[in-house]
Computed example of a mutant assay.
Amino acid sequence: MARPSRKDDILQAALACFSESGVDATTIEMIRDRSGASIGSLYHHYGNKERIIGALYLTGVGQYAALLDAGIEEGMSAEACVKLFVTCYVDWVAANPDWARFILHSRGRVEAGEVGEALREANREQGRRIAGLLSEHRRAGAFKELAAELFNSVVIGPSQDYARNWLAGRTKVGLIDCRDQLAQIAWESVKA
Score class of each variant (00 low, 15 high):
W187F: 11
R128E: 10
V154R: 10
K83M: 09
E117K: 09
T27M: 02
I72Q: 07
E188T: 13
N165L: 15
A112H: 12
R3L: 10
R128D: 08
I31E: 04
L119G: 06
P158Y: 14
A142T: 03
R179K: 15
A2F: 00
R51F: 05
G47L: 07
L58R: 04
V23W: 04
K49G: 01
R138D: 06
D98Q: 10
I52P: 00
G108I: 08
I103G: 03
L11W: 06
A55H: 04
E50M: 04
R32Q: 15
I53A: 01
Q160M: 15
T59I: 00
E73W: 02
E136S: 12
L11Q: 07
S159Q: 12
R101I: 02
L146Y: 11
P97A: 08
N96I: 05
A112D: 10
S38W: 11
R139N: 11
I39S: 11
A94F: 04
R107L: 10
T26K: 01
D24L: 01
N48E: 12
A142Q: 14
D98A: 05
S189E: 07
L150G: 00
R6H: 09
W166H: 12
L150E: 11
Q160Y: 15
Y64F: 11
G141H: 07
A13P: 10
A65P: 00
E136T: 11
V23D: 02
S189A: 15
L150P: 00
N152I: 05
N152Q: 08
H45C: 09
E74M: 11
A142W: 07
I130C: 06
A183F: 09
I72F: 03
K83L: 05
R3N: 13
D69W: 02
F151A: 08
A112Q: 15
Q160W: 14
D91Q: 04
S41I: 09
M30E: 04
N96V: 03
I10Y: 07
R128C: 01
D69F: 02
R129V: 04
H45R: 06
A94C: 05
L133S: 03
V154M: 09
S5D: 09
G116C: 13
I176V: 11
D69I: 06
L175Q: 06
V86F: 07
A142L: 06
G54N: 04
A192R: 14
Y162K: 14
W166Q: 10
D8V: 11
Q63T: 03
Y46C: 03
L67H: 02
M30W: 01
I72D: 01
G108K: 15
S38F: 11
S19G: 05
A78N: 06
G169W: 10
Q63P: 00
L56V: 01
R107I: 06
L150F: 09
W99R: 07
